[in-house]
């Protein structure tokens, strides 16, 4: 992955990279992508019919409204709260 691709990827991931990070991550990402290339030679057809993870039955619960066990406690954990609203920094 070149510098341009890394910059595009970082922007999509909403990460700002310093010049030093850009250099370091470029090497590490490149090494991992080369490692992922191990998959290129593997047979990808013979297992296509297998079920992947888990469950024997579908588990959809009834579509009914239920209140979270302690909504107030959840809201209180926000960084800054005002009348049950989460206050965010001034961004304009």
């Amino acid at each position: 992955m070149g510098d341009t691709e890394l910059s595009i990827t970082a922007a999509l991931a909403k990460l700002d990279l310093s010049d030093e990070e850009q250099t370091r991550f470029a090497d590490e990402v490149k090494r991992m992508l080369q490692y992922f290339d191990l998959m290129a030679d593997a047979d990808i057809d013979s297992g296509a019919e297998a079920d992947v993870p888990v469950r024997p039955v579908t588990a959809l619960r009834d579509d009914v409204l239920s209140r979270f066990c302690d909504a107030d406690a959840l809201i209180d954990r926000g960084p800054e709260i005002e009348d049950r609203y989460i206050v965010i920094p001034n961004v304009l």
Binding site: F36, M39, A40, A42, D43, I44, D45, S46, G47, A48, E49, A50, D51, V52, P53
Partner: peptide, 12 residues
């Protein structure tokens, strides 16, 4: 590709 190989691993 990884998802298809995961299916193969599961089957194996």
């Amino acid at each position: 590709r990884a998802q298809r190989l995961r299916a193969r691993i599961s089957r194996d």
